[in-house]
């Protein structure tokens, strides 16, 4: 076990904070923030894995096309896709939260579940 992977450890810690919020906080908005943080943690992890010390961003400059010059472009592309996906999920969750608040006047998911369970179907 070494401590060279500080970025990755931070990323996993962030993932953990978000994951705990997502699972344990009853407030829907906090759950959404937790989900966003979970995703941020994963993206940080991925981008950190793509980094190579001493190389620059993968944009061809001055015609140099050597592997030794640029960092790995794949993680950046994947994270880009991932960020879009998490914006989409966040928007859907926020819309759901808004509707639920309109119906039940609370953001507490447990309470909402309780109230919904009492409705006749």
């Amino acid at each position: 076990m070494s401590l060279t992977n500080l970025e990755e450890l931070t990323a996993i810690a962030l993932f953990g904070i978000g994951f705990t919020l997502l699972l344990l906080d009853r407030n829907l908005i906090k759950k959404i923030l937790g989900f966003s943080m979970t995703d941020s943690g994963i993206y940080l992890f991925l981008a950190a894995r793509g980094y190579v010390a001493g190389r620059t961003a993968p944009i061809v400059t001055e015609g140099v096309q050597a592997v030794e010059a640029y960092v790995n472009p794949i993680p950046a592309g994947l994270v880009l896709t991932g960020i879009v996906v998490s914006v989409a999920s966040t928007a859907v969750m926020l819309a759901l939260t808004f509707r639920l608040y309109r119906s039940y006047h609370t953001l507490n998911l447990d309470e909402i579940t309780n109230l919904a369970g009492k409705e006749a179907d």
Binding site: L22, L28, K31, S89, V92, M93, L96, T97, R99, L100, S103, Y104, L109, I112, T113, L115, A116, G117, E119, D121
Partner: peptide, 13 residues
């Protein structure tokens, strides 16, 4: 009604 929405929220989580 809210029941579907509430279950949708739990599904999403």
């Amino acid at each position: 009604r809210g029941r579907g929405l509430a279950s949708a929220a739990r599904y999403m989580v």
